[in-house]
Design a protein around this nucleic acid. Structure first.
Lengths: 133, 133
DNA sequence: TCACACGTTGACGTTAACGTTAACGTAATT
DNA sequence: AATTACGTTAACGTTAACGTCAACGTGTGA
């Protein structure tokens, strides 16, 4: 085989492709890059996103749906892959993770409470419908 | 008893009290009022918040912790007490409630996924600590 | 060759949710 | 009477997360 292409090259994406897939604008992707959340490589000037970039984007957007700021999402993403091999740094990281988890657990409670309330509200609506007729 | 005070007057609050209890600034409370989220009564010029106001504030802040905008929280709060006696309006409301519930259910999934991820990240950290020593 | 679709980098505009400052009134202490 | 502590309105400032130009380069099919 004379081809110079590696057999298992990782999938890569152009800015437009990623934007369409996740339903964000290209401006958004460039903005995330400015903030250091994505670091696509380049071919000439045009950005080329790796599978890892895609995953990070996914996580960012998931964070957004949770109401997290971009910085908070960035923090969390950093927690996912081990940065420091130093044991002191790891301990710090564990602390941070536990903090975040506590916060999210609280959020989960709020969420469940709100869902309950809405369920109740809906039931009341249905009930009042019965009595109208 | 010659007292003119009703025996079971509802509890009321000054702006400072509410602000301190919920750890927000008085500016925030006034801002919420501008947006129509709170409607304290007045004694002269100074605001007097009722128990109902307090509850609404609680709901607003719960919404914030979920990442909702003030407008979204306002919507939800409106869902809690029946506005329209009209059956068409009630049907519309039920729809809106179901929409919101769907959205929150999605958010709950995101949240649980993130919690799982963090749990895993923490476990990895703990593990790597073992191998350092 | 020329339009056209796609990419790029600035740079200014916009909205939400308050913060901050100014300028003032009022009620209780000192 | 003066200070202190609280309240008020009005208005401008700030930050985050993009939107929206403008001005330009690049490849490709008619």
């Amino acid at each position: 085989m004379a081809s110079s292409k590696p057999e298992h090259a990782e999938k890569s994406y152009l800015i437009r492709e990623l934007a369409e897939e996740f339903n964000v604008t290209t401006r958004t992707l460039r903005f995330y890059e400015e903030k250091g959340l994505l670091k696509p490589s380049r071919i000439g000037a045009t950005r080329v996103y790796s599978a890892a970039d895609r995953t990070r984007l996914k996580l960012i957007l998931r964070g957004k749906r949770l109401g997290l700021s971009l910085d908070e999402s960035a923090e969390i993403i950093l927690m996912y892959d081990p940065v420091g091999t130093n044991s002191k740094q790891i301990l710090t990281l564990i602390d941070a993770i536990q903090d975040k988890r506590l916060h999210l657990e609280k959020q989960k409670q709020d969420l469940e409470q709100t869902l309950e309330d809405l369920e109740l509200a809906e039931a009341k609506c249905v009930e009042s419908l019965k009595h109208i007729h």
